[in-house]
Computed example of a mutant assay.
Amino acid sequence: MNETRTVTSEANGTRSNAARPPLWLTILSLTAIALLIALGVWQIERRAWKLALIDRVEQRVHAPAQPIPSPAAWPTVSAANDEYRHVSVSGRFLHDRETLAQAVTEEGPGYWVLTPLRRDDGTLVLVNRGFVPSDRRDASTRWDGNPQGQVEITGLLRVTEPKGGFLRNNVPEHNRWYSRDVAAIATARGLDHVAPFFIDADARSQSGSGPIGGLTVISFPNNHLIYALTWFALAFMLAGRLFVTFGGGLFRRKEPWSGFAHEAAGGLDAVARRTGSDAGTIGEPT
């Protein structure tokens, strides 16, 4: 009987241990759960940051136009503090130094017309006057839209776009531009004392057959909540799987141990557990 009890205990222990995953797999799973939760929290924080950014930009865009930063403040101009500010600037356009950068807008494919504006203090500001389709790329097709005297421009302050567009680099030596890289354009056109930002002119700055202004697209994708829920869901599913795996060994109902053991028929210590008219004898242990 002692042997039977030992065998039963060993069988239960083996079954419990077999249900438990290896230690290294458990540690890896717990680490993955912690990482997924951390990613979800990070996305929640990113969402709060994005909502605050959208609110700041909305306030800047709809605020009254203010003069552009002075040359002394140019080194401190940044996207976080100044992007999309509603600004105004006055001066004279240098139409012979304009640059065309490829663009795709609601008007179709074409070019942004970037023209230096010389201010009264001699400094220059690059102005994105707006969009022209490919058939009006040549400046001679829009002379009547190029003001020659003093002008007042209002629009949105934009930070420079260095290096190029998506998978396409600017090629200044061939006059191919895919982004509005202020420093590179200034160098290619031989311009000095240029502001490190440019101005997206609004629709009111358009004249005659000149470029179409006011096409700035302000869009900030905000999918952080979806990302956060995805990370949290993955963490929950992994934790649930780990719980079920451990539960199979820790919470499985064990069969109660019985003091009676089945013996082969005819044995000296035979135990009969049947009842009824054909029940055998119950032998006392010796």
Score class of each variant (00 low, 15 high):
E3L: 06
T4E: 09
T8V: 00
T8G: 00
T8N: 02
T8A: 00
S9Y: 08
S9W: 07
E10W: 02
E10K: 08
A11F: 07
R15Y: 10
R15L: 13
S16P: 00
N17T: 03
A18S: 12
R20D: 06
P21R: 00
L23C: 03
A34Y: 02
L36C: 15
L36A: 15
I37W: 03
A38N: 07
L39K: 09
G40W: 08
V61E: 08
H62A: 11
A65R: 06
S70E: 13
A72W: 00
W74M: 10
S78H: 06
N81F: 07
N81E: 15
N81H: 11
Y84P: 10
R85W: 05
H86A: 10
H86L: 10
V87T: 01
S88N: 12
R92C: 12
L94T: 05
R97A: 13
E98A: 14
E98N: 15
T99Y: 02
L100A: 14
L100S: 13
A101Y: 04
Q102S: 15
Q102D: 14
V104F: 09
E107Y: 13
G110W: 05
W112K: 12
W112I: 14
L114Y: 08
R119P: 12
R119L: 13
R119V: 14
G122Q: 07
L126Y: 10
V127S: 11
R129E: 15
P133H: 13
P133E: 14
R137Y: 11
P147D: 12
P147F: 09
Q148T: 15
G149I: 00
Q150K: 09
T154Y: 02
R158L: 13
R180L: 06
V182R: 01
A183I: 00
I185S: 00
T187F: 03
D192R: 07
A195K: 02
A195M: 07
I199M: 04
I199S: 02
D200R: 04
D202H: 00
D202S: 01
Q206P: 08
S209H: 06
G210C: 08
F220W: 10
P221Q: 02
P221F: 02
H224W: 05
L225Y: 01
L225Q: 05
I226Y: 06
Y227N: 04
A228Y: 03
L229Y: 04
T230R: 02
F232H: 01
F232D: 03
R241E: 11
R241G: 14
G247M: 05
G249E: 09
L250K: 07
R252Y: 05
K254V: 09
K254F: 05
W257C: 06
W257N: 11
G259F: 10
A261S: 15
H262K: 14
A264L: 11
G266Y: 01
G266L: 00
A272F: 07
A272R: 02
R273G: 12
G276Q: 11
S277R: 13
A279Q: 13
G280I: 10
T281K: 11
T281M: 08
T286P: 15
